[in-house]
Amino acid sequence: MDGEVELRVDGRTRRLRVDNRTTLLDALRDGLGVTSPKKGCDHGQCGACTVLLDGRRAVTCLSFAVVHDGAEVVTAAGLGDGERLHPVQEAFLDRDAFQCGFCTPGQVCSAVGVLDEVAAGHPSAVTADLTGPAELSPEEVRERMSGNLCRCGAYVRIVEAVRDGAR
């Protein structure tokens, strides 16, 4: 029981046959060799597999690939402009906002998603005024980035990097 899907991944259109049971994450990693999103828990509990799915941050481990026929996926490997890293990635390097690096592609994709959400004025659980403009205060960044676990404990630097990356 399988199907065929077309995905646009990091700017390239790819077709592949997948088992219905294959998650988007496994389709990317095993099917297409796109190993930038990582499998840290496979249950939506760590955020390491976060990508930008049709422009918005999403985990890829809790979705079957067949559902996403025609979707656009951008991973951390496709965020930059050619050889140039995305400003969030540069900020992660400057702030040393990672150690082992395993959660990092997910953190980076999530951060880019957060910046878009803030730019669009979307509130978070800690936003005092739901109808006012969204801010990028440290508290806001912490809350918005809490779906990305980091066992090395780089959180403090991640918050700095996300805010730097917005500039």
């Binding site: 190993t35 930038s36 999103p37 990582k38 991973t75 951390a76 490997a77 965020l79 930059g80 890293l85 990635q89 992660f92 390097l93 400057d94 040393d96 990672f98 690096g101 990092t104 592609p105 980076v108």
Partner: peptide, 12 residues
């Protein structure tokens, strides 16, 4: 900065 940093922030 970390030598392998660019590879880590891109997931490569």
């Amino acid at each position: 900065r970390r030598v392998e940093g660019p590879a880590k922030v891109t997931g490569t």
